[in-house]
Simulated scan of single mutants.
Amino acid sequence: MNFETIGGVFERYKVKISEIRDAINFIKTLCSKVDEVRKQRVNIQLPEGKEALVSVETVKGELVVYGKVGEDNRFERIYFKTPSFTNWNGLTYAVLGEIVPDFPLCNKSFNMSYSENDR
């Protein structure tokens, strides 16, 4: 019988150690290949007025980023819509009918970021 089939605590510990060793070997293999990759800095010139819109699903919800290129290859406008910004409306409904001391609990349940909403 091997430790993968017994299933006790010590056997699960041995499996975990084996997985950690495999992960370390995998990381070492990848790190050895980094030297093979050539890093080059490419100067990209974007025409003035070009726009891009990107949406990414994060743990808390959708993150939207918009950018517009201005003069000298710099951003003329950049806009972020964070998941917290969208979820603030939900919090306003969650606290309806609650007493003031319950607000921190409701607020933490949504795990919002205040800094993302300074506009």
Rank of each mutant, 00 (worst) to 15 (best):
T58A: 01
F80A: 00
S32I: 14
Q45K: 12
P104N: 03
V15R: 07
V9M: 15
Q45F: 14
A94Y: 06
S32L: 15
N73D: 05
S18N: 11
I24A: 13
D118L: 15
P47R: 09
N73I: 07
Y66R: 01
L105N: 06
I17G: 06
R119W: 13
T92L: 15
G97N: 04
G49N: 07
N107D: 06
T58S: 01
I6K: 10
Y93G: 09
E4Y: 14
K28Q: 14
M1R: 07
K16L: 15
V95H: 03
I44H: 09
I44R: 09
S32A: 15
V65C: 02
V34I: 15
W88Q: 03
D118W: 11
K81W: 04
V56N: 01
Y93L: 12
V59P: 03
K14H: 08
T58N: 00
E48M: 13
K81C: 03
V59I: 12
L53G: 01
V59S: 05
V64F: 00
F103E: 03
S115R: 05
A94G: 05
T82C: 02
W88P: 00
Y93Q: 08
Y79A: 01
V56S: 02
S84F: 04
V69E: 04
P47W: 10
G49M: 12
D102M: 14
N73C: 06
P83G: 00
E51N: 07
A52F: 11
P83M: 04
C106P: 02
A94F: 08
G49K: 05
V34S: 10
K108A: 12
D118S: 08
I44A: 09
E4D: 08
Y79L: 03
